[in-house]
Design a protein around this nucleic acid. Sequence first.
DNA 1: GTGAAAGCGCTAACAA
DNA 2: TTGTTAGCGCTTTCAC
Lengths: 345, 345
Amino acid sequence: MTDTAPRPTLEAVAARAGVSRATVSRVVNGGDGVRDVLVERVRKAVEELGYVPNQAARSLVTRRHDAVAVVVAEPESRVFADPFFALQLRGISKELTAHDNQLVLLLTEGRDDHARVGRYLAGGHVDGALVFSLHLDDPLPELIQRAGVPTVFGGRPGWSGGRSDVVYVDSDNRGGARDAVRHLAGLGRTRIAHITGALDQTSAVDRLDGYRDVMADADPRLIAEADFTPAGGERAMRELLDRCPDLDAVFAANDLTASGALRVLRESGRRVPDDVAVIGFDDLQPVAEQTDPPLTTVRQDIEEMGRIMARLLLHGLDRAHRHEAAATPPSSVVLPTTLVRRRSA
Amino acid sequence: MTDTAPRPTLEAVAARAGVSRATVSRVVNGGDGVRDVLVERVRKAVEELGYVPNQAARSLVTRRHDAVAVVVAEPESRVFADPFFALQLRGISKELTAHDNQLVLLLTEGRDDHARVGRYLAGGHVDGALVFSLHLDDPLPELIQRAGVPTVFGGRPGWSGGRSDVVYVDSDNRGGARDAVRHLAGLGRTRIAHITGALDQTSAVDRLDGYRDVMADADPRLIAEADFTPAGGERAMRELLDRCPDLDAVFAANDLTASGALRVLRESGRRVPDDVAVIGFDDLQPVAEQTDPPLTTVRQDIEEMGRIMARLLLHGLDRAHRHEAAATPPSSVVLPTTLVRRRSA
DNA sequence: GTGAAAGCGCTAACAA
DNA sequence: TTGTTAGCGCTTTCAC
């Protein structure tokens, strides 16, 4: 725990290079319109003094922070059992880093934290926000919009109702689900069950809708509700087996859920895929490849989703900064999914 | 992507409340030594105007940021397959939030990023850093110390060599390992194998040392090297089975490794714990409880470790700020572990 | 192309 | 107890 030494200022660099502060500032910020000789001299002085600009001073005048908040509603703690979030975070981090932006992580533990997050965002500490709007009834998005911070959402917010000023990045959950169920049907399965995700999240609803698109007249008892967790998958699978012992396929809302379902199927003496074919969603490497048998699943490029979220936000900020504001509002992005065949279906 | 409106300043609040800026500042920062009437008037003005202090301006003069960097070396991407990191992050976040500090997340993707992180920390954007020093030869810690930023490490840094100014928070890895192996021995097992973690991390080395403490004269072929991943656990388990088909217990360096080992044991037709007893390390709920059979393991309170890291740093910063610097340097913390018995041993 | 000067919004002496 | 004043370190007109 060393102590911080006083850092050299622009002033010091200017003195050493024998130029004005303004010139040093120009050089530090790109050096356009400064004679090469001076650029060189300033660079040298910066080097020798180990000068690093004081971000606070800079922000004070530019009103830019080169920092973006990532807001994660985490009361459900699923966030942390599920590599999904981590992967997205990684994509975000990469993109932000590439554009010299910092990532300020805001984890909310429950409703009490919402005010804090709202205050922080309204406080103008960051240029924008990336928000994972996990739940349909989450008040956070409203709060954020009110704070007036440019925001991109991860996953379609349930309340957006087609508002075009709400920007989000999502996977084609419904299409992916359709692909999965069609694949099962193509395998000749007729009693295809679905284990849903947490239905207060749009991704779960969309996947259920996709299932229904294909299985319009399915036995409703073939649908069991779960919550994206392995434990939920187990519970739901037991329920299904109980209700419909004759089912011959399961489409689970995600890989974690599928892994739970697989365990129960094995316990019950069913062979996968011979007796029951199983498909997941996500294609989380560590999960899908480790299950027994390896999981056929709907792949979404999670890291890429994070990267795109950041890119969208940064572009928007850039435009706003250059006052091209209303001209071209960035629009949401929905990424395609692909079916990855392994052994379970 | 709404646009930011111009925020009211201290000046505006002062005008509205009919007091000086200094008074408003006092009220905003606690309100000591200001008459109640004025406090009330200022509060009202703040409320009406929706005033939020400009953090940049404040930092410029206080030289405080109320922000802490969390640096994670993540080239190994294990970080994201392993809930370990996420849990620690949660603990950190809780503690920082409780003290009104922000969490700036710095993910490094490889050596190239080190310079960037060094620059950022040296830039004085944050008051301190929490660093996960994953590898023995990592240059990052040196860089950080050089940047002069108060730092607390997660896990004992390999190069610290007893330097008392290096503050870290760690589990009693060696002691926990001893407990695990003793437990196996107590079960009457005699051919106890160990699957190590990545040996360029102190936690792995310490657990191996703990194993050796108890199994001083063990057959060296009973030790197989892995890397804290399920896949590594599988590989190592196969190796061990190959070399020592008569082994009757395995202590794995963590739960993920143990889960891989369990899979291989099952494949090989061994029953757990009847033929081979297995113990892991960490007690990651989603892993240890989901394995078949549920895993006996050495529990460490991961979230608490994160919380303590943050607390240690914040305390240090507080003291430094009050110039009690050298008096009481904070010292490292090593947390005890406990053995959690489930069915695998 | 370069420098001088005027703040950005806030806190912290110091006076009153 | 309150107000006045002087910066914190930087960017950015505006002259030169």
